[in-house]
């Protein structure tokens, strides 16, 4: 192509029949005497024909039914969402139902009573033996009352060593 040749864009638009009448005449007149532009225009038109000759492709399925089924399937979980609350909502509902119906507390009351009883008994075991004669703060001689139940030396036995029978001196 030379300087007087129309741009490729004009030839492409001519092949599309998308040039205004005046420009179309101008390009056609030029192409009639320019072998390069004539060849390019023929090539563009042949390309268009090649596209037209492409085999038809077909989906061969009823996409309408499939798409509707998919839309309905996606809509169902959204509709069911309020009926499936999260753990927080379930917990709050449980607390509300318990406070609204105190008579229904029996299984929980039993468990709570057992827990309180356990803590109370454990507390008794942990009572500190603190004779009133001892000064404050307590000396290392303080022992747990519970531990005196399980003294290492049975009553009446002698201690093998002076310090082996506890701080209070169970060997005494």
């Amino acid at each position: 192509m030379n300087r007087t040749c129309p741009p490729d864009e004009a030839l492409s638009a001519l092949a599309d029949d998308a040039l205004p009448a005046e420009a179309r005449t101008e390009v056609l007149t030029h192409s009639a005497r320019c072998p390069l532009c004539a060849a390019r225009l023929a090539e563009l038109r042949a390309l268009h024909d090649a596209f037209l000759a492409l085999p038809a492709v077909s989906l061969q399925v009823d996409l309408g039914a499939r798409v509707i089924a998919r839309l309905q399937a996606e809509a169902e979980p959204a509709a069911q969402a309020p009926r499936a609350p999260g753990w927080r909502a379930r917990w709050l509902a449980l607390v509300r139902s318990l406070s609204a119906q105190p008579l229904n507390l029996s299984p929980y009351a039993g468990a709570t009573a057992a827990l309180v009883m356990g803590l109370w008994l454990g507390g008794m075991l942990l009572e500190v033996e603190d004779p009133p004669s001892q000064p404050w703060p307590p000396s290392p001689n303080v022992t747990l009352a519970a531990m005196s139940l399980f003294d290492a030396v049975p009553p009446g036995n002698l201690c093998p060593r002076a310090d082996a029978c506890g701080p209070i001196g169970s060997a005494q």
Partner: peptide
């Protein structure tokens, strides 16, 4: 127009 020409 120009993109079509370039594509072709």
């Amino acid at each position: 127009k120009s993109r079509l020409a370039r594509a072709r």
